[in-house]
Design a protein around this nucleic acid. Structure first.
Lengths: 352, 352
DNA sequence: AACCCGCTTTTGATCGTTCAACACGTCAAG
DNA sequence: CTTGACGTGTTGAACGATCAAAAGCGGGTT
């Protein structure tokens, strides 16, 4: 009696409470159908036996696993951006509020990986998918839509028709805000360090930059190349060494921005004072002392919550939010020393 | 017929192949019991119908969910170390090789979170747990051992008796290697920047440093304080400004090391030439151009694989590796410019 | 008295799989 | 010729929950 040993079933709870299986089930799934007095008795028995419904049995009958599939990609070697940590945590937490859990799996990129999705579906191991790391021409949204599988993506489909629901960061709006911020600080020659065209995310960000420049009457100046920090350093270098060097650099990512900061250091220029630098992603390294990079911070946690909300809506677990099928969330600009004259150091915000 | 609609069951496969349920089941779970000819016929039917066994039904009967529980902690705000990304990926991939998946959940830290573990067990949602982020006086290993629940931890239990199996990084060995590396470069005044005593991980690392110093006939010199990069900067500063300043700094983490690098920059000292710096964790930022921090790289992927191997061993899925209950894996030293005179730049290893 | 109604509870069937036991033919040992 | 073992395949009974439908039961209507 003292050790329930994890062996309680509906049946055992029922007999302990002197009712039938179904009544116990109703106490859990439709309490309003049970007379208050009976309910109380059953709940006592449940507590006494530490009963929890067996998930497999429930899944078998209801044809719902209460699991959301999430594919973990191998972390790119030099990736500074620990999105998985934050996004997955937010998703997991939101899902838990409705009795759902996250099931991780791996799959090769591209359409070769669709098999894994198909397998999980055939096994009825998951009720739907959370997609992340969506890329240009990602085959998953289209395929899942065809199959009628519920899913929500973090990141829009960058090519072809928009299949399915997604939540994404408004990179363009973020970059616009960055340009406005720099403009307000007095900068007039603001250049953009970006990726080659066709990357979706990169195009979105540069579009916001361009739009802001045009609206403020500035000349857009864009340099692009494949790569990370090394590339950013090189691109920034050519800009700084060229004619009419920019006084501010807006970078498509924090990685490029670190390269740009390095290019400044190479030339003895002080970030924030001689040349301002802004990045995108607000990676943890941005707030290291001596880096203090101004950057656009993505509302990852909120995205996770909204993705889950949408997905559970599709599954009929919660009411589907009435809004549109897509949500664009604005990043927020974390202003640090790299875009601000040093001044009397406003109460060291570098570390908590 | 053309669209299997994900509705195939054992029964339907059986009738398609002209055999009974159980024979189909045997083809999947004990092929040697089925005559080759029959097997072939069944396998054809399985392929034709795209049949996959329903996981819930199988779990219900076998009392195995084929899921490993993993608790995701909220990522600390300034955490530079995307271990989760890599570790979880490795775990997921290894588990998949044996038909297992990873189930994520969240739980409050400390013994308050044990409820979540208990709940998953009572629901029979998982077969065992992978623990990470183990801390000093972590209640989980003891509790899980008491309950007889299979689990393997990434990280030893730092206090009390060693309950259960674990795999960990040999921080002491890593630090010893760092000191030897610096000694070989000619450094004789090597100081250690660490955390306050009692952190487990930190104590392990400082022990390796001290041991190496004594063996090499060097004076151990240890400074400690709570915190990250800001702290590292301050501690390094006092060392550099003091009498007999060290020529090399071994840091308990990359974060401290970034602080130390900053302290060097504050004083116009060049890393690798004037003062060497070594960190621990090999965080992505370590290989940024202009950072080039020498650091100890943890074999995260291998740890993930070994953890899964052990856990599946405990579950009886694979043969339990005969070795001891614990495994200590050596980190490897990634030598970069911060502990090497600049020289003629040996084929830019900063970025792939 | 017969009927119906709404509320509560119970009963049988079912989800898809594996376990345990057994049926059947064959073949070697006693 | 019996016996037991083996190889192959079948059948009934679980696993623990939910669904659908029916049953018990006071009370009011006709």
């Amino acid at each position: 009696m003292a050790t329930p040993e994890s062996g309680a079933t509906l049946e055992s709870v029922a007999s302990a409470a002197g009712v039938s299986r179904q009544t116990v089930s109703n106490v859990l799934n439709a309490p309003e159908r049970v007379a208050p007095e009976t309910r109380e008795r059953v709940e006592q028995a449940i507590r006494a036996l530490r009963y929890r419904p067996n998930r497999s049995a429930r899944s078998l009958r209801t044809r719902m696993s209460n699991l959301l599939g999430y594919c973990v990609q191998p972390a790119a070697a030099g990736n500074l951006n620990p999105v998985l940590d934050r996004f997955v945590h937010a998703v997991t937490e939101s899902a838990a509020e409705h009795g759902f859990h996250v099931l991780l799996f791996t799959a090769p990129a591209g359409s070769a990986g669709l098999d894994r999705y198909a397998e999980l579906l055939a096994q009825r191991a998951v009720d739907g998918f959370v997609l992340a790391d969506t890329v240009v021409a990602d085959p998953r949204p289209g395929w899942l839509t065809e199959q009628g599988v519920p899913f929500v993506a973090f990141g829009r489909s960058w090519s072809g028709p928009d299949r399915g629901r997604w939540v994404d960061v408004d990179g363009a709006a973020g970059m616009t805000e960055a340009v406005e911020h720099l403009h307000a600080l007095g900068h007039r020659r603001i250049a953009f360090i970006g990726w080659p065209e066709g990357s979706g995310v990169g195009d979105d960000r540069v579009a916001g930059y361009t739009a802001a420049c045009l609206r403020l009457g500035l000349d857009p100046r864009i340099v692009r190349a494949e790569g990370g920090a090394g590339t950013g350093r090189a691109l920034a270098g050519t800009l700084l060494d060229g004619p009419e060097p920019p006084t501010a650099l807006v970078c498509v990512s924090d990685e490029s921005a670190y390269g740009a900061l390095r290019a400044l250091a190479d030339r003895g220029l002080r970030p924030g004072e001689d040349v301002a630098v802004v990045g995108f992603d607000d990676t943890p390294a941005a707030r290291l002392p001596g880096v203090d990079l101004t950057s656009l911070s993505q509302p990852i946690e909120q995205i996770g919550r909204e993705v889950v909300q949408m997905l559970l809506g599709l599954l009929g677990v919660v009411e589907l939010p009435p809004g549109p099928e897509h949500r664009l969330l604005r990043p927020t600009l974390a202003v640090r020393a790299s875009s601000r004259p040093a001044g009397p150091a406003p109460a060291a915000p570098t570390e908590a």
